[in-house]
Design a protein around this nucleic acid. Structure first.
Lengths: 115, 115
DNA sequence: TTGACAAGCCTCGACAATCTAGGTATTATA
DNA sequence: TATAATACCTAGATTGTCGAGGCTTGTCAA
């Protein structure tokens, strides 16, 4: 199938980016490639989407960036998730779980357990 | 919790609307109330969002509308899902399943089964 | 009977998020 | 040497939702 329109992606991009970074520091270009690979081409996050998100996250103190030279000799801009970023990740994760469970419940025609 | 920001909702509204209609004809106001109830207030679809969607779906032949007098004496505009709408629902449902599974896989830090 | 409120449908402008399509610079490759 | 891949960035167009309003009909209380 492999397309999952961009609107579905909307709202979960920050969650996905933070999730990637929670596994270790990464640079932008790498995140795009990793998301694409890990999702088997379901997610093709565009550069025009990712870079502004990273800048916003940094402005908000959820990530910190630093430059580091790659073995190739090129300088890359790595991002590191902060404590605040981890908290944000938790919140977004919780939101996602509630949201997706609710959608699934509606699709199944049942009312979700009112916990 | 109860908020699940609007961006998550974006992209799944059509899916949700079609899903509601696949269970039987409904009028707009009713869909909003039903979604809100069935989701325990997680989804509060606004009129300014729903009505344009219904009009688009009708223009695309996914639903048909007809007027019917309610027991109260008021005339309501009911929507009925067409064969084309059912096909669209299937597609969107499949997209959703793939999308949500992939997000969950990324959150879990694993690569989804490349079925 | 009159006024307020709920039911029910609609639309316009603002806002937010993504994408398109460009730009720049460096390194690898043919 | 030229082209492609790597790596970062941004301005403008597009798209979807929302807020805020308008309009009509029915209900209910004062």
């Amino acid at each position: 199938m492999k397309k999952a329109d961009k609107n579905l992606l909307s709202g979960s991009t920050t969650l996905l980016v933070l999730s990637l970074l929670s596994a270790g520091d990464k640079y932008g270009y790498e995140m795009i490639a990793e998301l694409e690979a890990r999702s088997d081409h379901t997610f093709t996050l565009k550069e025009g989407t990712l870079y502004p998100i990273l800048h916003t996250l940094e402005r908000d103190g959820a990530v910190k960036s630093y430059e580091k030279e790659a073995p190739t000799g090129r300088v890359r801009k790595y991002y590191h998730i902060t404590k605040r970023g981890l908290r944000l990740l938790d919140e977004k994760k919780e939101e996602w779980v509630e949201f997706s469970q609710t959608v699934n419940a509606i699709l199944a025609g049942t009312t979700p357990a009112l916990a």
